[in-house]
């Protein structure tokens, strides 16, 4: 199908974009790469009256390192994050996660800001942002503010983003040296949406896990950061017993839905399995001292 009619604007400043959002309050949508919004519009599941394109606005396409963080503009594409040497070096988990997103045609256009604002709980960037407790920059009529993932993601494709707000950047903590990381996904076909997925960033000191960040995708209404599981791992050696215990914790904590690709019970079990795989690979990489 084709999109329903709408009015299109491609403003050259953020201020102008916010004014357009105010003028078309609640009936307009922001378009970044359009790789999630346009399928919805083509299928007429989304029929915004006004589309406001961010493509002509400067200053949202940079990746830079600022005080221990990577600041990534909302319009940076998945492909750029995947291939950026800065991201590969400073936050390898994010670069690797980008490589799991869809296919090269989609990665070439889809953006990190769009993915986070779209808030699909089976998507990679919302999960990594949640796992790493990254900061989300919001700009609106009242100025700018930063939100934590817990203050941003509400549920399935729902966020606290207001109708006149624009997500403009993300601030992701630079990973400490000698970290290990992993992205594990179970999907029917390469790079399709994960039936269950886990991301992990892990820091070792003398064989003990001194810090760990986990994110679970596709198994709850919003990306899940399993705090209790993280707490259980911190300070411990990653033994098979501990892995089994963590997998059980995760399986209990997720709130999956049944669909064509997997039942609730299957997703619950697989959430534990992918978490174990992610922890093992991250541990392996950390002990090899790869960074």
């Amino acid at each position: 199908m084709k999109p329903a009619p709408f009015n299109y604007f491609a403003p050259e400043s953020l201020k102008e974009a916010i004014t357009l959002l105010e003028r078309n309050h609640g009936t307009s949508k922001i378009i970044a790469g359009g790789q999630s919004l346009l399928p919805l519009m083509n299928m007429r599941l989304a029929t915004p009256e006004t589309l406001i394109d961010l493509r002509n606005i400067d200053g949202m396409k940079q990746i830079r390192e600022v005080n221990g963080f990577l600041e990534i503009g909302a319009m940076v594409t998945h492909q750029r994050i995947m291939t950026s040497t800065l991201v590969q070096e400073k936050c390898p988990l994010l670069a690797e996660a980008a490589g799991h997103i869809a296919h090269r045609q989609v990665r070439n256009r889809g953006t990190i800001g769009g993915s986070v604002a779209h808030a699909d709980p089976a998507a990679e960037f919302p999960t990594v942002v949640t796992a790493l407790d990254a900061d989300i920059k919001i700009e609106g009529p009242g100025g700018e503010h930063w939100l934590k993932p817990a203050e941003f993601f509400l549920g399935f494709m729902m966020t606290t983003l207001q109708p006149t707000d624009i997500l403009t950047a993300l601030r992701v903590p630079v990973s400490p040296p000698r970290c290990g990381w992993s992205v594990q996904e179970l999907a029917r076909k390469e790079n399709f949406f994960a039936i269950a997925g886990a991301v992990c960033l892990l820091q070792l000191s003398q064989n003990r896990v001194v810090d760990v960040h986990l994110g679970i995708m596709g198994c709850s209404p919003a990306p899940l950061k399993p705090l209790q599981a993280e707490e259980t791992i911190r300070g411990q050696e990653l033994t098979d017993d501990l892995l089994a215990k963590v997998a059980d914790l995760i399986s209990e904590q997720v709130e999956p839905e049944s669909d064509l690709h997997g039942t609730k019970a299957y997703r619950r079990a697989m959430a534990g399995v992918v978490t174990k795989r992610a922890l093992k690979e991250a541990h392996h990489r950390a002990s090899e001292g790869r960074q």
Binding site: P3, Y8, G34, Q35, L38, P39, N42, L51, R104, Q105, V106, N108, R109
Partner: peptide
């Protein structure tokens, strides 16, 4: 390379 069905 892009999918031209997902570009206006």
């Amino acid at each position: 390379a892009v999918n031209s069905c997902l570009v206006l």
